[in-house]
Design a protein around this nucleic acid. Sequence first.
DNA 1: GCCGTTTTCGGCCCGACTGTTTTCAGTCG
Length: 578
Amino acid sequence: MTKEEVAAHLELIGTLMELRGDDAFRTKAYHGAARTIEQLEGDFDTLIATGKLAKVRGIGETLREVILSLAKTGTADVLEELRAVTPPGLIAMLRIPGLGPKKVRALNTSLGIDSLETLRVACIGGKVAGLKGFGEKTQQKILDGLTFIESVGERVRIDQSLPLGLMLLERIRALPGVLRAELCGSLRRRRETSKDIDLLVAAEDSAPIMQAFCTLPEVRHIVGQGETKSSIVAEWVTHGHRITLGADLRVVKPDQFASALVHFTGSKEHNIRLRQLATDRGWKLNEYELAGPNSRVACETEADLYAALGLDWIAPELREDTGEIEAATQHALPKLVEASDIRGVFHNHTTYSDGVNTLEEMALAAKALGFEYLGIGDHSQSLTVARGLSPERVRHQIAEIDRLNQQLDGFRILKGIECDILKNGDLDYDDDLLAELDYVVISVHTYFDLPIEEQTARICKALRHPATTMLGHATGRLLLRRDGYKVNLDEVLQTAAEHRKMIEINAQPSRLDLDWIYVKRAKALGIPLVINPDAHSTDELALFRYGVNVARRGWLTPQNVFNTLPLPAILQSLRIPA
DNA sequence: GCCGTTTTCGGCCCGACTGTTTTCAGTCG
């Protein structure tokens, strides 16, 4: 089993234990281990072989055995035992808002409910309301929840949730009495997907703000409304897509805003570490204050609060408890790359292949964005569905780029290609043609189902090709739609490092591939990353910002990102005559 | 199930809201 599969199975064991009614701290250990394994840096197989697993925080003797068993055999005794006593449909029931393991277990043992369908029938028949601990309202809430999970996916992509979140934020900031307001949660941390939108407001009087929030035009229904916290489901139509997403609003007093902002930005794991730091000093930390036994620490900003705990301010993107607390203690946090550091982008498409704008239109749009250069990477010949370029068309495009570069003042179009990696790891053009180009992006678009060893070998072979400059969308994943192809990324990164190749952060919000966890790993190996929008239109050039988010989550500084270099340095690095 | 300069047992982050209770359990973040 791969690292990801082991993590997913640990998660499953934890959930099944919850449904069985196991001790909460025991189940938490499994959930914690799942997360730890998922974010492990370094090669998983090596880690297992060298027995280093035992040194990882949160993994003791029992979990080590379970992980080894999962990795080797694909299952574990504890998992099989749990599966034998738990109907698989119970897990689906946990997705209903308001239903947790205890209630699901009660429904199963008392009424024999074991699926969403039997649950619906029992609710309609009024059987659930009669159960101890349940009632009419709970029964109705379950029915609403069943409808809700049919209409809403679990998570949405950041390009859908962030605009909706920012729009709600603007509406809230415009309300009278709102002193400060921010987006919080996974959106503020710029995670690639979100489950809901978290909003925080500072105000003296919360009631009118709650009232206004719950009656915003985007509100489809109100999940809960209290004095300081309300939850709604918002619906919004943009670019022809209907987006339905939950949104929570918290209102606090102005002097509570900094601690509340930290609290609601999370992540949960980051907050737990902060509270432990507070506890170590005999203080307590919650959303309202950082306080000692006799007095509270005045915090106007987040930085004040972090400083009181002996930490430098930590950018929201880093707050995942993957080393940022330690780095902040030692004043060793990286100065993260920003969108304004990006001087140009590679890997973009034009009407030559499957783009919708011409070469010239793309160049002018890139220049208007403030870029110094635009790299073109249309598809190569074998990808016929995307109108991949024949060698003649490539040379035609090269000639047109030369002409346009004569006209464009202070701006340069770079001649690249998104070259398919063929099934055997060869590139899609002969060496002579590849040598005429300024750079080569290599990508997998075919044979997604190869065995992991073959896929890895294929990509590594293409990476070793002297003409190769950078690897595009390393796993081919489509967020919330399709897993990437099976590939040993640690080996791919190792090969890239050895042969001094770059790796792309594909900034398409549906991809965000390389994942930030591996971005961090690539940085550790000294591999330059390149943030590319993979734009198929002029509008899509601006998507590079989503790639910057990934880079920041991966701890990258401007020095780690190739396209923060100005044009002269790019030309020199790629050995292009000025 | 994990962990340890309060160390091999007894802790483990903390509070809001809801619904079903009559003082609290469950869920959520």
